[in-house]
Design a protein around this nucleic acid. Sequence first.
DNA 1: CAAGAAACTGCAAAAAACTGCAGATTTAGA
DNA 2: TCTAAATCTGCAGTTTTTTGCAGTTTCTTG
Lengths: 249, 249
Amino acid sequence: MLKAERHQHILNEVSIRSRIQLSDIADTLGVSIDTIRRDVKELDDNKKLKKVHGGAISLGYNIFPFSNNEVFNKEKKAQIAQKAITLIKENAVILMSGGTTNLELARQLPADMDITVFTPSLPIAMQLLAHPKAEVIVIGGKVSKDAQLAIGAQVVQELGNIRADLCFLGTGYLDIEHGLTEFDYEVVQVKKAMINSSRRIVSLCISEKLNSVQRFKTCDIRDIDTLITELPPDAEVLRPYQSFNVNLL
Amino acid sequence: MLKAERHQHILNEVSIRSRIQLSDIADTLGVSIDTIRRDVKELDDNKKLKKVHGGAISLGYNIFPFSNNEVFNKEKKAQIAQKAITLIKENAVILMSGGTTNLELARQLPADMDITVFTPSLPIAMQLLAHPKAEVIVIGGKVSKDAQLAIGAQVVQELGNIRADLCFLGTGYLDIEHGLTEFDYEVVQVKKAMINSSRRIVSLCISEKLNSVQRFKTCDIRDIDTLITELPPDAEVLRPYQSFNVNLL
DNA sequence: CAAGAAACTGCAAAAAACTGCAGATTTAGA
DNA sequence: TCTAAATCTGCAGTTTTTTGCAGTTTCTTG
């Protein structure tokens, strides 16, 4: 990996997240933390960012108007994302819905991974642009301001043309009886289409969301091939799900 | 193998992959790495790409478009954006290309403005999500990592279905003789499609870009209805453009 | 103030860049 | 077509840059 690429990656990360940690970058790019430290120092010297203890921060605007830097349960989501990444095979075609857990996944994707990602989520697409090898295809349409996700008939139709190996499906709410549910009906339609276009459905779900229900239903639990949560396999709350071929961390 | 062939191959690779490593190219073409190094140096001298330690990157690649560090240019772009906003009518349907000047426009859009914006640019779309009233439709496709812009046949086709009132067209390079030009051919195709889909074309262009040329042509200057720059009307550099119905700040 | 994390420093191995040169190839003019 | 000049190309030796590591110092946090 070229130094210039690392610099670009770092600037992208800073631009997207408004702050970075050296250790994270070193991890993602697979180089030593000293190298990243030197990179960041150089970028700081060139006034491209501001180096701070342990990382760096952006000088100007963020790309994301809503600062979604404060992710709830970021640790858990990072764990889940790590597990999800192990499911990805080289040259896979992947569908990704939105949500902060998927965003964490996109962020942690190893730099040498050669994949193609389709997504209607703008933050996910932006994040993946920082990845040196991933090919990114954004699925266009009217963008929901809440979900920062393209929705509508056009999106559903476009998804019909795709046959993905893997779908990382975030969900707002998950319950044994009512399945995966959402607050927004249009989001549900998009997610249904994503499910129809993928061979394997993997749902990433922090434990806080288990046993919660909302108004509109995406699918039943049995439509999910793999559920990833951060809980140990014997957790009480997971008991009802065990029969659905649930993979655990 | 001719030198010209190698140069072409190198430019192609850079254009497609945004980056190359000298060793890879030398390997592929079966010549010594020194030869490739000399080739790349020459291409760098001719401003066709940017040479970096160990390889080369495309010209657009290291522009770090969206971390907004250069206060100086930001001032100019803000001025230009302000002027551009005065051209927008209520309930207008607007097409926006990418670029930092357009991004500045998106940032400054008054909150009470009720408009519909189509754009293949991810940062523009993200920015507009922060706007309370603007409806945002992102045009989907494979995303160029350099331009952070959806490109390709799908984008062009989608643009064919749109009839916009106004198109804010950023441009990399502008010259009286060669018109609007870009480094990337696919970006040119998208911009051509945008021009065909709009009643009025407004190009935002800071003065640094005047009298500069790149490899691929978007359109002639006479295809632009309005050109907005930050220079006073009597600026020497603007003299040649006066006859093209140029609006000035 | 004490423990842990991060930063700094110097160093050595590896990679890349640079330099000069000689043989090969191309070009230009007779 | 022939020849001389100019250019191109690969090679070997040298210099510079990059990078990870280990030891030490500085900073942060409770």
